[in-house]
Amino acid sequence: MTKAATSDTLASRLLLERSAAWLLAAPLVATLLIIGLYPGLYTLAAAFSKSTLGKPFQSFVGLSNYSFAMRGDFADALWRTVVFAIPSSLLQMLLGVAIALLLVRVSRFGSIWRALIFLPMMTPPVMIGIAWKLMLLPSGGLLNGALMHFGLISAPRSFLGEMPWALISIALADTWQWTPFVVLLAYAALRALPDDIRQAAYMDGAGKFRTFFQVQLPILMPALLGIFLIKLIISFKVFDLIFVLTTGGPGTGTTLASYAIFRTLLQNYDVGLAAAQVLLLVLLVTVLTLPLLRLHKRLSEVTEA
């Protein structure tokens, strides 16, 4: 009888725990419904309908939003997004890892480094855009002034007004903003490496470069790939810098996907078309990041084994 009583209290206790756990997770589930499921379904439905900002879901139009999206400038905008995101992310990885390697060797600058490195990644992108706009101005901009001072150009150039410089300028501001993020994560990954591996290789006569490339880099690979993945995803979201620096111009030269969708909304109030464009962008991001995600998973398993 006592046995039955204990198992009884055990069962009721387990039940109590389960319901308490559900209670704790319930707000998250509600959140995911509001910011995940609902926008997903809404966008799916809107993409197949004629919808405007004032009056959504007027009529069913099948795939016409998609075919319109792919015929127009949006296919170009998607392509430009890839051309922007992949090279700029790679550059930021390269710079970030190099700076992290430098940081690991210098201990004295610890706290100054940290504070300075945080500033770019936490400064509001709008303000970053304004700062870079001032630096790139044709009249009175710092860059034009410096280039003319050293005789590299004879007349000021409008870096934000001509291609490909406008896109490169956005990549430059983006690199300023996000390289510190890579530095921070790469630094943490480097610090997590066991020091004796490096020393053993060093003792065996391997130089610093060989030690890094043949010993440390392979171990770091999963972590670096993970950082690259995050950075790539962030790159596909770029919007604020474009708004401030170029408003998508010259022409549509810097109109990347998010900005193109923003224009569809603000200029044509065409919610149906915007929804179709959104889905195409999500598809693109998924197709490009899925192989990396797979690779990341495989590499992590190999290193852990």
Binding site: I35, P39, T43, I233, F262, L265, V271, V278, L281
Partner: peptide, 17 residues
């Protein structure tokens, strides 16, 4: 699911919200 939502560009949920 949470990671998936993070991956999607914010402009996805702009309109519905």
């Amino acid at each position: 699911l949470t990671l998936g939502i993070y991956m999607a560009p914010p402009i996805v949920s702009l309109l519905p919200l």
